[in-house]
Write a protein that binds this DNA or RNA. Structure first.
Length: 561
RNA sequence: GCGCUCGUAGCUCAGCUGGAUAGAGCAUCGGCCUUCUAAGCCGGUGGUCGCAGGUUCGAGUCCUGCCGGGCGCGCCA
């Protein structure tokens, strides 16, 4: 539809260029926008304002010339020039409802495109260290990362979802010590409890399982508790496996699945870290200072150089990060998106700098980052900080248990990533129109309910059956709905391009709202079966788009509520 | 102090690559269930888009400065 308008305009522009009204050596690309106000038609174009300087005449005059040269099209009812020189297009009613046919034809594929052309894209998200249950922040990452992945898939990309975790180093050591202390019967209140030990109840669970000789399976490995209180290494391996399994259960309950679990330790085992170090040294970007090895990240925009090998000979986290991303690049991902909490933003410049210093042809701004801001959880207007299970933070499991998976996913993905998010438990639990999740799901269920009712009356309609004469749809609400449905594909495209999944949530809220209004204002199961059938076709198209959209959010579309 | 980021109605938030009188929901006030699910609908009240400049035919949107919130500034990850 928009393309049609755009083509008409391009044709008119070309005519003006050949006539000499517009310079032939410039290219003019008309931007066709959606209108906010119906009195401005369905689409508007500002090209006359943009090009008036080049034409050397006032915008309104240029607009008039342009409109005169627009080719005829059955899709356009009328064209108006308004305000300072906007060209407003009023589309024909018949063309507005073509989308209903398209939607019912394409069904679950409606809105999807092949722009990605099968290109391999990796989305790394969550990447929590196995030191405890996933917290709300991880939940936000999981919701955003997964939704983004689904959006990219809908745009024809081949997406790999990856989870990276640190299975060695200081905090894992700390975890092992904490579990060991529990194994030996200590509690966080004891004075011998490790200074930075993990205090949550889950540590006790790990300790008990270890002592009981339980076997846990996670990420292709199987670890059995050795029950030996003094074998710290055995405790560490068991604890890591145990907590990884726990996180997997959280993610599963959340409906998120990963294709690859990447262990930091593997980068040491297969020499990737050494390889990175050697390359950086060869390229002359390293130097020794204070007994440590530094990388000249300042040459690539960092504000200070970074230590890559510590005085004690160990590497900082920064180096395996670089090695990890080199590995991603070598695996052939020309597009990589890292979804992380905003507290990681300092690593962005650093990792990119390290990758440039490798000098292996990685583009400057690679990889992409999507950083989400912090999440605060409230109940009865008060901030909730404590979870019994984790001790010091609210877990993903807490939220799923309390408000359910659909609401949790929706709320965590529905906000712009760069704004801080307040997760209101009362709101997420409420079952009224103040809760957008139920509001959208209810629209879907209502349509399904109407279909059931119709069936009781002896009329069976397939979900993708377009029956009836759509030209009988003459109401404003119906045309508005059709227009809203027609916007869905471009929404899928732009949300993926911008890496902003929240648009989807808002779009669905709007669509559901329009539907509820229409539903209340006009009955569908009426005696005039011709109109009824046409309306049902529109209903089915709405149902399909809501189902498609909710699917991309990872939220269910119930048939009854 | 420096860097990143946000600051839109009482509250929670939209506002697509700058575009035509700033939008929702909640709250508040008032209506609608003998009729397809009231988990719904309709209407009213409510905003100098943090402040001040600048760019532009046009700025909530871009630039600068200031104020305020968040995050980061470890040989922690």
């Amino acid at each position: 539809m928009k393309e049609t308008v755009s083509e008409l305009l391009q044709s008119a522009l070309a005519t003006l260029q050949s006539e000499g009204t517009l310079p032939a050596n410039q290219t003019f690309t008309p931007q066709v926008g959606n209108t906010k106000d119906k009195s401005h038609g369905d689409y508007a174009c500002n090209i006359a304002l943009v090009a008036s300087k080049a034409a050397g005449c006032p915008p309104r005059k240029l607009a008039e010339a342009l409109v005169e040269r627009l080719p005829n099209s059955s899709a356009v009812d009328k064209v108006e020039i308004a305000g300072p020189g906007f060209i407003n297009f009023f589309m024909s009613t018949a063309s507005a409802f073509e989308v209903v046919n398209t939607i019912l034809d394409e069904a679950g594929h409606y809105g999807r495109n092949r722009n990605g052309n099968g290109e391999k894209v990796q989305v790394e998200f969550v990447s929590a260290n196995p030191t405890g249950p996933l917290h709300v922040g991880h939940g936000r990452g999981a919701a955003i990362g997964d939704c983004l992945s689904r959006l990219l898939e809908a745009n024809g990309y081949e997406v790999t979802r990856e989870f990276y975790y640190n299975d060695a180093g200081a905090q894992i050591n700390n975890l092992a010590l904490s579990v060991q202390s529990r194994v030996k019967g200590l509690t966080p209140e004891d004075e011998n409890w490790p200074a930075d030990g993990y205090r949550g109840d889950y540590i006790t669970d790990v300790a008990n399982a270890y002592l009981a000789g339980e076997t846990v399976t996670a990420d292709d490995r199987e670890v059995t508790g050795k029950a030996d209180p003094d074998d710290q290494q055995a405790i560490q391996e068991f604890a890591v496996a145990y907590l990884r399994r726990e996180q997997d259960l959280d993610l599963k309950a959340f409906g998120v699945e990963f294709d690859v679990y990447f262990l930091e330790s593997s980068l040491y085992e297969n020499g990737k870290v050494e390889e990175a170090v050697e390359r950086l040294q060869e390229n002359g970007y390293t130097y020794e200072h204070d007994g440590a090895m530094w990388l000249k990240t300042t040459e690539f925009g960092d504000d200070k150089d970074r230590v890559m090998r510590k005085k004690d000979g160990g590497y900082t986290y920064f180096l395996p990060d670089v090695a990890y991303h080199l590995d991603k690049w070598q695996r052939g991902f020309t597009t990589v998106i890292n979804e992380q909490g905003a507290d990681h933003h300092s690593t962005v410049t650093r990792v990119r700098a390290g990758l440039q210093a490798l000098n292996v042809g990685i583009p400057k701004g690679w990889p992409d980052y999507v950083l989400h801001q912090m999440v605060m959880v409230t109940r009865s207007g008060q901030e909730v900080k404590i979870s019994k299970r984790a001790g010091s933070y609210v877990t993903v499991r807490d939220l799923i248990d309390e408000v359910g998976r659909d609401a949790t996913r929706f709320f965590l993905a529905a906000r712009r990533v760069d704004s801080q998010l307040t997760f209101d438990i009362d709101l997420a639990r409420s079952q009224t129109n103040e809760n957008p999740v139920y509001y959208i799901q209810y629209a879907h269920a209502r349509i399904c309910s109407v279909l059931r009712k119709l069936k009781e009356e002896g009329v069976e309609r397939g979900l993708n059956e377009c029956v009836g004469d759509l030209s009988l749809l003459t109401l404003d609400e119906e045309k508005d709905l059709a227009n809203q449905l027609a916007k869905y594909p471009e929404l899928i495209e732009s949300s993926a391009k911008l890496r902003e999944p929240h648009h989807l949530a808002h779009y669905l809220r709007d669509l559901a709202g329009q539907f509820h209004t229409y539903y209340n204002a006009h009955k569908v199961l009426i005696e005039d079966t011709a109109v009824r059938d046409a309306r049902i076709s529109l209903y089915l198209a709405i149902r399909q788009v809501i189902a498609n959209g909710l699917d991309l959010l990872g939220v269910s579309a119930p048939e009854e509520m």
